[in-house]
Amino acid sequence: AQEYRALYDYTAQNPDELDLSAGDILEVILEGEDGWWTVERNGQRGFVPGSYLEKL
């Protein structure tokens, strides 16, 4: 798994998404072809927009 940093804040719109704060460090589990990536942070897993992340 790769570590990424959130570039922007994101507020989850659905229960299966995660909130992001700019600067958060996340582990990317799966890069979805639809642009939604499965990530894990502090034991929580959910979808976030891949375009909001940069690889560390």
Results as ranks from 00 to 15, higher is better:
Leu20Phe: 12
Thr11Cys: 12
Thr38Pro: 03
Tyr8Thr: 11
Gly32Ala: 12
Ile29Glu: 08
Tyr8Cys: 11
Gly46Asp: 01
Lys55Trp: 05
Val48Tyr: 00
Glu33Gln: 14
Glu33Met: 09
Tyr10Arg: 08
Leu18Glu: 02
Tyr8Asp: 10
Val48Leu: 02
Pro49Glu: 02
Glu27Leu: 14
Trp37Leu: 11
Gly46Asn: 01
Asn42Asp: 14
Ser21Leu: 13
Leu7Phe: 04
Glu31Arg: 12
Gln13Val: 10
Val39Asp: 00
Gln13Lys: 15
Leu7Lys: 13
Ile29Lys: 11
Asn42Glu: 15
Gln2Glu: 12
Phe47Trp: 10
Asp9Lys: 08
Leu56Ile: 15
Glu40Leu: 11
Tyr52Pro: 01
Ala6Phe: 00
Val28Gln: 04
Glu31Gly: 05
Pro15Cys: 10
Thr11Val: 11
Gly32Ile: 03
Asp19Lys: 03
Asp19Arg: 03
Leu56Lys: 03
Glu31Ala: 11
Ala1Glu: 15
Arg41Trp: 03
Pro49Tyr: 03
Asp16Asn: 15
Tyr8Leu: 11
Leu30His: 14
Gly46Lys: 04
Trp37Met: 12
Tyr8Arg: 14
Ala12Cys: 03
Pro15Arg: 10
Ala1Val: 09
Val39Glu: 01
Tyr52Thr: 08
Tyr10His: 06
Ala1Pro: 09
Gly35Cys: 03
Tyr10Val: 00
Pro49Arg: 07
Leu53Ser: 08
Leu26Phe: 05
Gly50Ala: 14
Ser51Leu: 11
Ala22Lys: 13
Gly35Met: 04
Ala22Tyr: 06
Arg41Phe: 15
Ala1Leu: 04
Pro49Cys: 03
Leu30Trp: 12
Glu33Trp: 05
Ala12Asn: 01
Glu40Val: 12
Ala1Arg: 15
Val48Ile: 04
Val39Pro: 00
Arg5Trp: 06
Val28Cys: 08
Glu31Ile: 15
Gln13Ala: 13
Arg45Asn: 04
Gly23Ser: 02
Asn14Gln: 11
Leu20Gly: 00
Ala1Ser: 15
Ala22Val: 12
Thr38Tyr: 12
Glu3Phe: 06
Tyr10Ala: 00
Glu3Lys: 15
Pro15Phe: 05
Pro49Phe: 02
Gly23Val: 00
Ser21Trp: 09
Pro49Val: 02
Ala12Arg: 08
Asp24Leu: 02
Ser21Asp: 12
Ala12Tyr: 00
Gly43Cys: 06
Asp19Ser: 11
Lys55Gln: 11
Arg45Ala: 07
Arg41His: 11
Ile25Arg: 11
Ala6Met: 06
Leu18Thr: 03
Val48Phe: 02
Tyr8Phe: 13
Glu54Arg: 07
Asp24Ser: 04
Ser21Thr: 15
Asp24Tyr: 02
Arg41Ser: 13
Tyr52Gly: 05
Ala6Glu: 00
Tyr10Ile: 01
Pro49Leu: 07
Ser21Phe: 12
Glu33Pro: 14
Asp24His: 03
Leu18Trp: 02
Gly23Met: 01
Thr11Asn: 06
Ser51Pro: 08
Pro15Ala: 12
Leu30Asp: 14
Glu27Gln: 14
Arg41Asn: 09
Trp36Asn: 12
Arg5Gly: 03
Glu54Phe: 03
Gly32Gln: 10
Glu33Gly: 10
Leu30Met: 15
Asp34Thr: 11
Asn14Val: 05
Arg5Glu: 05
Glu31Cys: 13
Ser21Ile: 14
Ser21Val: 14
Trp37Thr: 07
Ala6Gln: 00
Gly32Tyr: 05
Leu20Gln: 00
Asp19Leu: 01
Ser21Met: 14
Ile29Tyr: 07
Asp34Leu: 05
Leu7Tyr: 02
Asp19Glu: 07
Val28Tyr: 04
Lys55Tyr: 05
Ala1Lys: 15
Gln13Asn: 10
Lys55Leu: 09
Asp9Met: 04
Arg41Gly: 06
Leu18Val: 09
Trp36Ala: 05
Leu18Gln: 03
Pro15Thr: 10
Gly35Tyr: 06
Glu17Arg: 02
Glu27Ser: 13
Glu54Leu: 04
Val28Lys: 08
Glu17His: 09
Thr11Tyr: 10
Glu33Leu: 09
Glu27Cys: 14
Glu27Asp: 15
Tyr8Ala: 14
Arg5Cys: 04
Leu26Ala: 06
Gly43Pro: 01
Asn42Val: 06
Leu20Tyr: 02
Glu27Tyr: 10
Asn42Pro: 04
Trp36Phe: 15
Gly23Pro: 00
Arg5Gln: 14
Pro49Thr: 00
Val39His: 00
Pro15Tyr: 07
Arg45Phe: 05
Arg41Lys: 13
Asp16Thr: 14
Arg45Lys: 11
Leu26Met: 13
Ala22Asn: 06
Arg41Ile: 06
Leu53Val: 15
Glu54Ala: 07
Phe47Gln: 11
Ser51Ile: 11
Glu27Val: 14
Gly43Glu: 08
Glu33Val: 10
Val39Arg: 00
Gly46Glu: 01
Val28Asn: 04
Asn14Ser: 12
Phe47Asp: 12
Val48Pro: 01
Lys55Asp: 06
Tyr4Lys: 02
Gln13His: 10
Arg5Thr: 10
Gln44Ile: 12
Lys55Phe: 04
Val39Cys: 13
Val48Trp: 00
Asn42Lys: 09
Leu26Val: 14
Trp37Tyr: 10
Leu18Cys: 06
Ala1Trp: 03
Gly46Ser: 01
Gly23Gln: 04
Gln13Tyr: 04
Gly43Gln: 08
Glu17Lys: 02
Asn42Ser: 13
Tyr8Gln: 15
Val48Gln: 01
Leu18Gly: 01
Glu17Met: 03
Gly35Trp: 03
Asn14His: 13
Tyr4Gly: 07
Arg41Cys: 07
Val28Phe: 06
Glu17Asp: 05
Gln2Val: 13
Asp34Trp: 04
Arg41Ala: 08
Phe47Met: 15
Val39Lys: 00
Pro15Gly: 11
Glu17Ala: 03
Glu40Ile: 13
Trp36Ile: 14
Asp16Glu: 15
Val28Arg: 06
Phe47Val: 15
Val28Leu: 14
Glu31Leu: 05
Ile29Gly: 04
Arg45His: 04
Leu30Cys: 15
Asp16Pro: 03
Pro49Ser: 01
Ile25Lys: 12
Glu3Val: 09
Gln44Val: 14
Glu17Gly: 05
Gln44Tyr: 08
Ala12Pro: 07
Thr38Cys: 10
Leu56Ala: 13
Gly32Phe: 05
Leu18Ser: 02
Gly43Asp: 08
Leu30Val: 15
Gly32Asp: 10
Ser51Thr: 14
Glu31Ser: 10
Glu33Cys: 07
Tyr4Ser: 08
Trp36Cys: 07
Tyr52Asn: 08
Tyr8Trp: 10
Asp19Trp: 02
Glu40Trp: 04
Pro15Lys: 12
Leu7Trp: 03
Ala1Gly: 13
Phe47Lys: 15
Glu17Cys: 07
Glu40Asp: 12
Glu3Arg: 10
Glu31Gln: 12
Asn14Asp: 02
Asp24Ala: 04
Val28His: 03
Arg5Ala: 07
Tyr8Ser: 12
Glu17Val: 02
Pro15His: 11
Leu7Ala: 06
Asp24Met: 05
Ala12Trp: 00
Val28Trp: 01
Gln2Cys: 12
Tyr8Glu: 09
Ile29Met: 10
Ser51Tyr: 12
Gln44Asn: 09
Trp37Cys: 14
Glu17Trp: 01
Thr11Arg: 10
Gly23Lys: 01
Asp19Met: 06
Gly50Val: 08
Gly23His: 02
Asp24Asn: 03
Leu7His: 03
Trp37Gly: 02
Asn14Met: 10
Gln13Cys: 12
Asp34Ile: 02
Tyr52Glu: 02
Val28Glu: 02
Gln2Gly: 10
Gly50Lys: 03
Gly43Ile: 01
Phe47Tyr: 14
Gly46Pro: 01
Gly32Thr: 09
Ser51Met: 11
Leu30Ser: 15
Ala22Gln: 10
Phe47Ser: 14
Tyr4Trp: 09
Leu56Cys: 05
Ile29Val: 13
Asp19Tyr: 04
Tyr4Cys: 05
Asp24Val: 03
Asp24Arg: 00
Tyr8Ile: 08
Arg45Asp: 04
Thr38Ala: 10
Asp34Ser: 12
Trp37Glu: 02
